[in-house]
Structures are given as C-alpha cells and as structure tokens.
Design a protein around this nucleic acid. Structure first.
Lengths: 149, 149
DNA sequence: GTACATCTTTGAGCGCGCTCAAAGTCAAGG
DNA sequence: CCTTGACTTTGAGCGCGCTCAAAGATGTAC
C-alpha cells in the first residue's frame, strides 16, 4: 500500500514519456533502479509527474544520451538525495563526464573528417566509372584516422 | 583444413590487436561475423595480418568507436567485397553515418554546455558553504538542454 | 622429454539498458 | 453489468557487442 503524497494534478506517465522523448517503460525502470525518487500518485495509484520531475528526467535523458553509464547516474542521484554536503562529489562526477564528452567529440570529429575523405574518394571512383574507364580505377583507400590527422 | 595462402610474415593477432587498440578476441569475432575477410595464415595455422588488413581494421575500429552498428558495418564489408560497382551504395552508408556523427556531436556539445552551467552552479554552492551561509543556498538547478538553449 | 606460451576452434556466457509479458486494479462510457 | 483503456507490479526476455571457457595443436626453451 502506497502511503506517499496523493496528487491528482501533474503529468501522466505517458505524457511525461512523450515530453521527455522516452518510453513509459523506461520511466518506470528509472524509478525502480533509483534514478528517479518515488513520484507522486493520483488517488488511483497512477503516477503523476511534476515539473521538477520533468527537469530531473530531462537531465537524466541528457546524460544517458551522452553515454553516461546508469551506474554513474545512480551514484549521482544518490548523492543528490543527501543534499548540498555532497556538492563536491557530484561536481567531480559532472566534470569527469564533461571530460568524457570532450573525448567523444574529438573521436567523432576525426571520424567525420575521415569520412569526408572517403566519400570524396568514392565520388572520384564513381566519376571514373561514369566516363567508362574502369581499368584506371585505383584500389579503395581504407585510410584510418592516423592517415588523416 | 585451411587451404588459403600460407604466409609466415605479417603481424600476429596479439600484435595486431595492440596496434589497433582492440583485443585478439574482437579480431577473431570480427572475422567470424564477416567484417574481416579470412586473413593469411602461417604454416602452423596462426593468423598473420598484413598492412592492408591493418588499414581496414583501423577503419572498422573508427566506425565502431563512432557507434556504427555491427550490422551496418557488415553491410558495408559485403559491398566492399563486390568491388567498385557498389561504390554508390557504400558511399550512401558513409554519408548516412557521417550525418549520424554530426547529430551525435550536436548532442554532445549541448550536454557539454549544460555541464558547464551545472558545474559553475556547484562551485557557487560550495563557495556559499565555505563562507558558512548554508541558509542562503538555493535548491539545485537541474536545468535540461532546453533551459540552456 | 616436457614444460610453457601462443595460438586455434566452437559455443556458451555476460553486462548493459532497456523492453515486454502477465496478471491485476480502477474509472469512465454504453 | 460489462467492456475498454490506461495504468499498476514483478520478473523474465532480448539485442548488442563483445568476452570467455574448454580443449587442442604447435613451436621454443630448458
């Protein structure tokens, strides 16, 4: 039996899922694993999400979308429950993740540049085929990052 | 019994794994699922990787590192085996992946900016704690991407 | 000769992050 | 009253990408 706050106002789980770009399944899962604190309920036991919940869920979504592991998000969520005294630990988590993001961006940018080259190479090959000189086509260049950077 | 080319020169699987920043397990797995064509063997049946293999493996590594699914890499590898006539299809795959990379970069950059704000906010909270005015501390801001712009 | 390292194969197992199935509750509509 | 639909819970299942275990072959060192 649920003994928390009863509130018939707020977003339903479906609405919340749509607003945050995730599924109701995922919202329940996040609550189960402690990423979201037990949320308010309507008189019939159905979840009702507040705007504060939405802000937090959007934050979670943003962290997941940038490949923060669930475990680390759990750690962060736990610290958050403990209040301001955990500020430094939480900040460290965010700083670490920010660094991880920076690395990811670097990787992606290198790959993006590599693809520019390969795509240009394909266009050249197609052009050669188009003017009917297949005998002149070179072997494909499978250049890796280091041959680009 | 293997009946391919016997070559005692080339890189061993361990060396290749180190050079490409992956494990020998993964190299065998990639060969099993068709991402890598059957590679040369020494007289004792051990794999021997060539420089051309290395270039291709580095490319695979780069695509995986930027979240191209194995399935799509398989599709690309198959087309590659079919020669120049598949150039356009392969180019499309690369262009699609390049677009996916661009989207990822955007997401990551937004998250990076969001973390800048949140980290600054944490520093402010810590500063307030340090000068012993905990009563003035505001509730944490869990601002999401949209509140960052 | 015999240990040891390094490789081989095949199939199974695992960690992650959902995703779904089953069975049940409740409120509204016809 | 009965159906419909949106929700609830719990536990199981799944897709992905490895990762490993087991059993065996081979080459080198002592």
């Amino acid at each position: 039996m649920y003994v928390g706050i009863m509130q018939n106002s707020g977003y339903t789980i479906q609405i919340m899922a749509e607003r945050c770009g995730m599924t109701a399944h995922t919202l329940r899962y996040y609550e189960r694993v402690g990423l979201i604190q037990p949320v308010g309920r309507a008189h019939n036991g159905h979840r009702r999400y507040s705007d504060a919940d939405e802000a937090w869920i959007n934050f979670l979504h943003c962290m997941r979308a940038t490949n923060m592991p669930i475990r680390e998000m759990q750690r962060y969520a736990e610290l958050r429950e403990l209040g301001d005294s955990t500020s430094e630990q939480r900040r460290k988590i965010l700083e670490d993740h920010q660094a991880a993001i920076a690395e990811q961006i670097t990787q992606l940018q290198q790959a993006h540049a590599l693809l520019m080259h390969k795509i240009a190479n394909y266009k050249a090959i197609e052009q050669r085929i188009r003017i009917d000189q297949p005998a002149l086509s070179e072997p494909e260049i499978d250049c890796a990052i280091e041959s680009v950077g």
